[in-house]
Simulated assay, not measured.
Amino acid sequence: MELDLKQIPRVKTLSKEEFLSEYFKPQKPVVIERFIEDWPAYSKWNLDYIKEVAGQKTVPLYDDRPVKHDEGFNEPHATMKMSDYVNLLKTEPTKFRIFLWNILKEVPQLQKDFTYPDFGLRLMKGLPMLFFGGYDSHTFMHYDIDLANIFHFHFEGKKQCILFPQSETKFLYKIPHSLITREDIDFANPDLEKWPALKNAKGHIAQLEHGNVLYIPEGYWHHMKYITPGFAMSLRAIARKPQNFGKAVYNILFMRHFDGVMRRIKGQKWIDWKNERAITRTHNLLFGK
């Protein structure tokens, strides 16, 4: 038995009016296949180009090790020169990923290679972020702290994306006071006997290739698995639904700070309690146990 995942609709291109009526208003994901072919980035952006323009930059790297109580929010697990990281990506599998790497701050010249698309939403122009990963690396299933609408532009290689709306949270073994699910769930090939609630979750799946744009509606859970080495850029727009905007404010102003305080007070016991609570709460809701 596998996860209940529907293929995300794919279109060649999309007008602003079509996007707003068919995908944004009903909050449905979509893959736009040929939307950015007029961007210089479409023909220029690959790993070799990134190595050329940013090779001497020191970059933060993250892997798939479990969260520990003494690690800060988004604290990197290692650092490396971008040139060395690209060489690593191209020569061997690696779990190291880069995420939330701000183009404006790190490599301003990359701004010349793309334009901010008009989807009818006000994009946060100060936050064009790059994400990199090696063969078979993956992110944990998570949703973004600000529950933003995300436009994910993929470059080089292939990547598998699994999405779930917030309505499916009760089936996903969410960790309390955090933005992730249990880290030991392999959403690309889950053990549904060990994690039976996942049988009830209804989600979406797509494979991205160079030049594809994935729209991730606000607050959607997402899991990214790199089938080959590659990278992507995300642009975002604030959550419009009042409940999502309210949850974003709560996450940013309270939740992450409360979690940080509890880590300092209780240490690893806090992490262990949260991991156990993810199971008991999910099964209590689902099975009444």
Rank of each mutant, 00 (worst) to 15 (best):
D4S: 09
P9S: 12
S15V: 08
E18K: 15
S21F: 12
F24K: 15
K25W: 12
Q27T: 09
V30Q: 11
R34Y: 13
R34L: 10
A41D: 03
W45A: 01
W45S: 06
K51Q: 07
A54C: 07
K57D: 13
T58I: 15
T58H: 10
P60W: 06
Y62T: 03
D63Y: 04
D64F: 14
R65A: 14
V67R: 14
E71T: 10
G72E: 09
P76V: 08
T79W: 11
M80H: 05
M80V: 00
K81Q: 10
M82N: 08
Y85V: 05
V86F: 07
L88G: 05
T94R: 06
R97D: 02
I98F: 11
L100D: 12
L100N: 13
I103F: 01
K105G: 01
V107N: 01
Q109G: 10
L110S: 02
K112M: 10
K125N: 03
F131I: 02
F131Q: 07
F132Y: 12
F132N: 01
G134K: 03
H138W: 06
D144A: 01
H154N: 13
F155R: 03
E156N: 05
K159P: 02
Q160M: 12
C161P: 00
F164V: 01
P165R: 02
S167Y: 01
T169C: 04
L172P: 01
A188S: 14
A188V: 00
E193Q: 13
P196I: 10
A201L: 08
E209T: 13
I216M: 09
M224F: 15
Y226G: 05
Y226R: 02
T228A: 05
G230V: 06
A237S: 14
I238D: 13
I238N: 09
Q243W: 03
N244P: 06
F245N: 07
V249D: 01
Y250H: 12
H257I: 09
G260F: 00
R263K: 15
R264I: 07
I265E: 00
I265V: 15
Q268T: 00
K269A: 15
W270M: 04
W270D: 06
D272I: 07
D272A: 05
D272C: 02
W273R: 11
W273L: 12
K274S: 12
N275E: 13
T280M: 10
R281E: 13
T282V: 04
F287H: 10
K289F: 14
